[in-house]
Nucleic acid binder design. Structure first.
Lengths: 129, 129
DNA sequence: GCGTAATCTTAAAATCTTTTAAGATCTGCT
DNA sequence: AGCAGATCTTAAAAGATTTTAAGATTACGC
């Protein structure tokens, strides 16, 4: 290993947008979002996650590995089990903001659908201030 | 095409984790992250984005369409150009939190590389040379 | 050491996304 | 109407990710 690389492993210097994209991409799978939520307030073993997700050992391991590579998770071995936990709780803030954005988009979409029928000229379902 | 731009088709009820995953997945491409940042404080036309990104018309349109489908962007036509803008500024908060997480992960990784003995987490990055 | 449970790795097949290239549309102009 | 510029759509090829299935490791108790 070389001395002063700024990356984890010496590789081609990736542009910042690609690093961000890779970060988001690792969140782009339902099982992985689910794993993060299962790890919200305590660590869990692979077996526990596997049971909750209802996917097999291989799949679970691969999702966990992807998130560990990305720096989202870390693991600790205790006997024959491995416990995973999230590394940075700010990831939950991220999930929360995402949910807010998604929810309000849903709400707006619903307004559009409901407005088609409403005929009171000034307001629809959601009274504005 | 039918009525207006994007409606929520009544399809199979997708589980929430999948909706979240799809949301993150649309952020999982460098060009799309880049587009969002280009749209941070003003809208832009497709042509402007295309020039900044150095990708062709087709690619640009497709990325824009993906983000519009996801509800991230909206568009307005002015003559022969189409202007895009972000729909919900909270998306920038998301990008910001992501960057914080990524940065501190980088900082930690560097700590591990640079020092094994000193462990003041706040000052380690440029403390020794 | 051997057997067993837990986790990880690998490789091929299946699936999904991105790129590339060509053409279609839509708008304003003359 | 016909033309030109801007944007959008589509389809096929290339590339990446996910799933599936099988085998490899690792740690523990006997």
């Amino acid at each position: 290993m070389s001395l002063s690389d700024q990356d984890q492993q010496s590789g081609p210097p990736r542009p910042i947008h690609q690093i961000k994209a890779e970060f988001f991409r690792v969140l782009g799978h339902p099982a992985r979002v689910r794993i993060l939520e299962l790890l919200r307030d305590h660590e869990s073993t692979v077996g526990e996650l596997q049971a909750a997700l209802e996917i097999d050992s291989s799949g679970t391991s691969q999702h966990l590995a992807a998130m560990r590579r990305q720096g989202l998770l870390e693991s600790r071995r205790a006997g024959t089990n491995v416990h995973y936990r999230v590394r940075d709780p700010r990831i939950f803030k991220l999930l929360e903001v995402a949910l807010q954005i998604i929810s309000s988009h849903f709400a707006e979409a619903q307004d559009v659908l409901l407005d088609k029928e409403a005929d009171t000229p000034a307001m629809s379902r959601k009274a504005r201030g």
